[in-house]
Design a protein around this nucleic acid. Structure first.
Lengths: 206, 206
DNA sequence: CCTACCGATCGGTAGG
DNA sequence: CCTACCGATCGGTAGG
């Protein structure tokens, strides 16, 4: 209707910095997070980088490969972050607090990655889809185990550790959907608050 | 690679019941929830109904119209459910418990609708996108107001009602992502448990 | 409800 | 990094 003012040409000025595999992944990450994997044509990724679509193939194997790389890296970071956060901690309460804090913080500081994981993981072809899904379950199971430990130790009171872990994990994931860098709260403030919510959900009383 | 065993032909047998606007909307809802709006071609909706793609236009204006109808109905139901649930209740704790319960229950029993709202609301064109977004904010504000009331009344203890309401709402939304009808818990059990979590998050002590 | 068909756009390739 | 181009598929229309 109005081709002179195309609203999908979101990138205002093609930056003439060097295009690398990393800059392609970064542009793809931004656009996948905004419009979804299926809603993002390669032509828009190219336009954001100031190059033509076929030139993207100097930096990637395929559009799927872009998604797969983004998801694999993101899940690796989440699992590493979890391991680092709980390492050396003693009680289930300490572990649950630290695990929730780092998970919540990650979702405030890596919003694009979280949005793509939650929206487009199903867009992968097998066997990558199963691999990614198993990685997510690994993290879920680890958090559930902490809660179950806390229940056994008499530290927590929940009817079902699986339900509580879903609630804690998913409220943290949602931070990616509403957090703004220029908002009234810092990422660290939100993460601390949510870590506190996690302990409340499992009825931990210090 | 293997055209004889096309995995995207998910509908096994085209049911030869009457195709209506409602059955088109239902098939679209199932497929949008599974693959996303942009990931679902009209040809698959038609195939699920056992008709050809152009025949869909006897029951709809456009693909966008399908999405818009699904989202509008869903948001209407959420707001109506909220109003009915808190109507006549007295204390903030009663209201928050009832509002969370009905919201959680809805996400367990209307999983497809919830997945489409959360994934594809951005796929709408203006002005529908803004209208839908405003409806969601209306619900958020109402829940936040209950929490703020509870804090003022000394019933709840939270640093920031906005943060607590996001946590409560979004953990409930997530039910749509993992709940299974054939799982170990009924929708009502999950809803009751989550309503309890909501009161824990705001530190309500009966 | 169908067949026949449209222009546009998709991801991707050839060949420099 | 480009132009030129590919077959496939998209949402949608014409005309019965």
């Amino acid at each position: 209707m109005c081709p002179a003012a195309d609203p999908s040409a979101a990138a205002p000025a093609p930056p003439r910095t060097a295009v690398t595999r990393e800059s392609v992944l970064d542009a793809a990450l931004t656009l996948f997070a905004e419009r979804g994997y299926h809603g993002t044509p390669l032509s828009e990724i190219a336009a954001a980088l100031g190059i033509r679509t076929p030139s993207l193939y100097n930096h990637m194997g395929s559009k799927q490969d872009l998604l797969e790389t983004i998801l694999t890296r993101t899940l690796d970071d989440v699992l590493d972050g979890f391991a680092d956060a709980v390492d050396g901690l003693g009680t289930p309460a300490e572990k649950l607090h630290a695990a929730t804090r780092v998970y919540a913080l990650r979702h405030a500081t890596h919003r694009r990655e979280a949005l793509v994981v939650n929206r487009d993981a199903g867009g992968l072809d097998e066997p990558d889809r199963s691999r990614i899904r198993d990685r997510r379950r690994e993290h879920e199971r680890a958090v559930r185990a902490i809660i179950a430990d806390g229940v056994r130790a008499g530290e927590f009171q929940v009817g079902d550790p699986a339900l509580a872990s879903f609630a804690i994990l998913e409220m943290s994931v949602s931070i990616a959907r509403w957090f703004r860098d220029d908002g009234p709260r810092t990422a660290a403030q939100v993460a601390d608050e949510f870590a506190g919510y996690a302990l409340r959900i499992v009825r931990y009383r210090p």
